[in-house]
Write a protein that binds this DNA or RNA. Structure first.
Length: 288
DNA sequence: CACTTGACCTGTCCGC
DNA sequence: TGCGGACAGGTCAAGT
């Protein structure tokens, strides 16, 4: 799904759209995607007001006035789509994306006091949403082990390289996707940044020079910042909080461009398999 | 511990 | 047109 830039785009959208709204009702289809009890929902969610919308790695946190928060992971195909009272008219570009919600992929629906709604859709059902005390969030396993935010102002190239030390014997692609090494990197931005740094994704972490780590650090931040600016990437199902697609794919250099020319050298881009994931490389710019 | 692989799901696309 | 298999933005729990 959604990697850091897509989740950040959703966060910014929700921050504009739902803060200050009060939750009137909540409905969900399965316990797997929303494991909280009816009692907890009625006590800590219904009637609460949205205080803040935050993000850590690929996890969204919607803070409530009850000192509880909704934690949300969109995984591969999750969407959080806000629909206000105003309906998109026929022919509006958003119509084909969000049509009428809820639909068969809708897992959770929140209705606010002003009749606007927030839909959590997830075609593949890998994603989840759960309610927990806000102060407990830093204590959950994921938050304890997740790596630093790669776009943080105080994140340095030295810290970046040090994070990889314990993964010396795996591929750089597997390591950069490891959320406990660096937060928020997924398949798209792993391929894009490795192409930018001219590093083959199968290279072992231990074989990379300090200069290569430094270049990869710069490329990763450049690519992720551009993606945030462009509202993320929409390959298939991703949309932002208003149901709109992101445009980073128009700027992608290798991801999903197999068979096309490398924008740097003109060699045909190939798709291979690394760390169990589809991986896009320029075989000329990136070699073992 | 570090590392790899399969599982979790539904939908789509591609080859026969 | 139908059917089987591979594959899709991400984690996890197992196995070695």
């Amino acid at each position: 799904m959604p990697e850091l830039p897509e989740v950040e785009t959703v966060r910014r959208g929700l921050h504009q759209l739902i803060i200050g709204k009060a939750v009137r009702t909540e409905t969900h289809d399965t316990e797997k995607g929303f494991p909280n009890s009816v009692h907890d929902v009625n006590t800590f969610l219904i009637g609460s007001t949205i205080i803040d919308v935050r993000r850590r790695a690929k996890v969204l946190m919607i803070d409530l006035s009850t000192n509880y928060s909704l934690l949300i992971h969109l995984k591969m195909t999750g969407q959080l789509v806000f629909v206000g009272e105003t309906r998109f008219g026929a022919g509006h570009p958003n119509d084909s994306l969000i049509h009428d919600l809820p639909d068969k992929s809708t897992r959770v629906t929140l209705a606010f006091n002003d009749n606007s709604k927030l839909f959590f859709n997830d075609q593949r059902k890998f994603g989840w949403m759960r309610l927990m005390p806000t102060v407990e969030i830093p204590n959950i396993d994921f938050m304890q082990k997740v790596g630093p935010e790669p776009l943080a102002d105080d994140f340095t190239p030295q810290q970046f390289m040090q994070r990889f030390a314990r993964r010396a014997k795996t591929s750089i692609k597997a390591a950069i996707l490891d959320q406990s090494v660096i937060a928020g990197v997924g398949n798209i931005y792993a391929d894009e940044s490795l192409w930018g740094a001219k590093i083959h994704p199968s290279r072992l972490v231990g074989s990379l020079s300090e200069q290569e780590f430094s270049t990869l650090y710069t490329e990763l931040r450049t690519v992720m910042n551009l993606a945030v600016e462009k509202g993320g990437s929409s390959n298939h199902t991703y949309v932002n909080a208003e149901g709109k697609k992101g445009s980073y794919m128009n700027f992608a250099r290798v991801f999903r461009r197999e068979g096309l020319a490398c924008p740097r050298c003109g060699t045909t881009i190939e798709k291979i398999r690394v760390a169990g994931r589809g991986t896009h490389i320029c075989p000329h710019c990136q070699h073992l």
